[in-house]
């Protein structure tokens, strides 16, 4: 959650409520279940850790949703490290999805490059797992686990391929349509 909130701030400083609407926009129907309070708790923790700063906007009540949050240099470094992290897989794909959305919105990294790095990592794991399954001496019950691991990794690969297709198309569409608008690309409602 911390990394996601940081990355969502990478594009530009934002009010708490803007941040919340960016997250909801990026998650679509899945964002409905998101707890707004969780974002403010996370922001408070990030501020304490020196990863974000916040300013009280003049003329507005001093509430977390009305404060403007921005990344510190340490926060920016953390976002870069998170984008480069290829730890995979997590049963929850939301974080990876948000990584791509945040990377594209703030032009921090090419989503397709991130997808490629993950695809290589998943492929490496799949290769290791399948090689384990080739072992003739492998116990059939263990083989069952290996088969399960392989099946999940194959599903991940298929999903990553779908991600690659979509982000490649989006990239083409964005580059093809002039003039380019900064606020397009994955964060509907973000800069309202």
């Amino acid at each position: 959650m911390q990394d996601v909130v940081l990355a969502m701030l990478a594009k530009e400083p934002a009010h708490g409520y803007e941040l919340r609407s960016r997250m909801r926009g990026a998650l679509g129907p899945l964002g409905d279940a998101m707890n707004a309070g969780q974002i403010y708790v996370t922001l408070a923790r990030l501020a304490k850790a020196g990863l974000v700063t916040s300013q009280h906007a003049e003329g507005l009540p001093d509430r977390p949703d009305r404060r403007v949050y921005a990344l510190t240099p340490a926060g920016q470094q953390r976002v870069a490290a998170w984008l480069a992290d290829v730890s995979w897989p997590k049963p929850d794909l939301t974080e990876f999805h948000l990584k791509l959305v945040a990377a594209a919105a703030a032009r921090l990294a090419d989503p397709v490059t991130l997808i490629d790095a993950h695809r290589r990592e998943v492929l490496r794991r799949l290769r290791d797992s399948q090689r384990a399954a080739l072992e003739r001496s492998v116990d059939p019950v263990v083989g069952l686990l290996v088969e399960g691991v392989v099946l999940r990794l194959r599903a991940d690969l298929e999903w990553l391929e779908a991600c690659e297709r979509m982000w490649t198309e989006r990239d083409r569409a964005d580059n093809g349509s002039a003039p380019r608008t900064e606020d397009r690309g994955g964060l509907p409602g973000g800069a309202a």
Partner: peptide
């Protein structure tokens, strides 16, 4: 789009230790 080479150890199943780590 991509060209990756693997260093394959002779023994199959060499990666067993890392296989289950992700799940």
């Amino acid at each position: 789009a991509d060209d990756s080479r693997f260093t394959t150890s002779a023994a199959t199943g060499a990666g067993t230790g890392t296989v289950y780590g992700g799940w």
